[in-house]
Amino acid sequence: MSAVRTLAFRRFLHEVGPVDAVGVEERVAKYGTRSIKRQAKVFGLKLAASMVDLTTLEGKDTPGKVAALCAKALRPDDRDDGGMSCPPVAAVCVYPSMVAAARRALGPRSPVRIASVATAFPSGQAPLATRLAEVRAAVGAGADEIDMVINRGAFLSGEFTRVGDEISAVRDACGQAALKVILETSELETYDAIRAASFIALRRLRPGDFIKTSTGKTSSNATLGNNQVMLDAIRDHYLASGVAIGMKPAGGIRTAKQALTFLIAVKETLGDAWLTNTRYRFGASSLLNDLLRQLEKERTGAYQAPYRFSEATESY
């Protein structure tokens, strides 16, 4: 049942190399000890805000709620008097049925991109033809980016070629839209499996595409540990092939401090070339207001109350 026990998995892992789990845990524990102060902190906070994929993925989403999300995405700090103390976020992330509403709210040439989850998110348990049709529908409605889930059932039973071929099929259905491949790390169980799944995806992706940790719909979400394993895979793939793939941790990143720690991991693993929203994103919603709060604290010197900022969806 578990992928870790199949022969196919061991063969594949032999090829891409296993993960030193204890080493990863020790390394990420050190990231929290870096001292980021003043200008570097303000730079990091603004950078993190520019990397947010502001997300709402709920059954109760309405066009009105998506329009409010888009307004927040364009101008995160509504007290901003045009000085742009906080840049617009990278993208809004919605269900395919809400893409048209997001496009209406943002307009045709927006600095904020529209990402849509597709492929029977979050489980991915639908026929391939259905999943591909969903991707085409989302792109047709105006999505700039597609967040797909991998077929974890196939992965865990050792059918790696099938997992890869499905990613290729979705990639081709995306056309010009960028693709983000969600591994759903919480269902892969081990760091070895996360590394293996990362490579399956990385080898099928084009420059400008992303790999992503989680759907945000399961018990555990992005952690520094699985972020690190995926960053290492991106680095190894880049050194071997020259193809630069982006990374998106999603779910569970709620505080500015967490976001800065993730950025430290990016800088120390992949370098400055990845410190841009074309190569690194945060799938989050409540994170944005905490970033604003800390930016305002840096500006005024006074700790801020959360209710002083316009509401963002708090569910992700």
């Binding site: 010197g301 006074a302 700790y303 801020q304 109350a305 959360p306 002083r308």
Partner: peptide, 8 residues
């Protein structure tokens, strides 16, 4: 000073 300035 922080009691004085903390907006929360």
């Amino acid at each position: 000073p922080t009691f004085a300035s903390h907006a929360h």
